[in-house]
């Protein structure tokens, strides 16, 4: 579904030096897979995820989504993003819009469904995350966990084929992590293709079809969750796991 070929990303620093964040990543994501990416901070895992929908433009390499190289400047990236949902660490709900308006803005403005259909669908989705009563409030009055569940609903209302999660629980109070992970688990059970950057090892064990360990801009190790956690191959991963588990 998504194949990443020799993906490199460099950032220019203010002092003129160049930092290589991704050093030639190759990976294949198939339909229905749940890929969980873990790694130390600064390893490039978020940058890798953000390259998948071109929120970061790669320095070189290709990302083939459904047979199309989306790094090509001629590709209409907005059309591609309609099919790839993204959930952010800081939720990024639109502060000037109510929950309902947040959810229906994109599908209505992009002419994918009518406003009436979008409202129906939003209600269904809100019901599923137990937040239907919050439809008409502004994001400022919601807790972090509620905001993130609504951010997920907002992406889902676009009917995406794949969902990208960029540390979705890292900015949450501990007691709210569970409610967001539950929504993500449900989504996984329904067969959604998911790519998740997270520090929640429990989630990785339970939900992932593959776990990737990214360090210093490379995928150091890739395995099923069982093998990944019980039988880590590299010294780096053994160290990392000993710290986080």
């Amino acid at each position: 579904m998504i194949s990443v070929k020799n993906l490199c990303k460099e950032f220019k620093n203010t002092d003129g030096t160049v930092t290589q964040v991704l050093k030639g990543i190759n990976y294949e994501i198939n339909k229905g897979e749940k890929i969980v990416i873990v790694g130390p901070s600064g390893s490039g895992k978020s940058t890798f995820l953000r390259c998948l929908n071109m929120m970061e433009r790669p320095t070189s390499g290709q990302i083939i989504f459904d047979g199309v190289d989306i790094t090509d400047h001629k590709v209409n990236i907005n059309k591609v993003r309609e099919r790839m949902g993204m959930v952010f660490q800081n939720f990024n709900l639109f502060n000037n819009l109510t929950v309902m308006q947040n959810i229906i803005l994109a599908p209505v403005k992009l002419g994918i469904i009518t406003e009436a259909q979008a409202r129906e669908k939003a209600k269904e989705l809100l019901e599923r995350v137990n937040l239907l009563d919050k439809a008409d409030v502004y994001p400022a009055s919601l807790s972090g966990g509620q905001k993130q569940r609504i951010a997920i609903v907002r992406s889902l209302c676009m009917n995406p084929e794949v969902m990208l999660f960029d540390e979705p629980t890292s900015a949450l109070d501990p007691e709210m992590v569970g409610e967001v992970l539950d929504v993500m688990k449900k989504l996984a059970d329904e067969g959604m293709t998911m790519v998740v950057v997270t520090h929640e090892m429990g989630f990785a064990k339970e939900v992932a079809t593959k776990v990737l360990f990214v360090d210093e801009g490379n995928i150091l190790e890739e395995n099923t969750p069982k093998e990944f956690f019980e039988n880590p191959q590299s010294k780096r991963l053994q160290d990392f796991l000993s710290k986080v588990l």
């Binding site: 929120m55 059309k79 993003r81 949902g85 993204m86 990024n92 709900l93």
Partner: peptide, 27 residues
């Protein structure tokens, strides 16, 4: 206005102009 607002709009497939008009400018 928080950069994340523009990013969220773009991630949903909205153009820069549309996100500017409905999300960033009102804020």
């Amino acid at each position: 206005v928080d950069k994340g607002q523009m990013e969220a709009g773009r991630s949903l497939g909205l153009s820069k102009g549309t996100t500017m008009r409905y999300i960033v400018l009102p804020q």
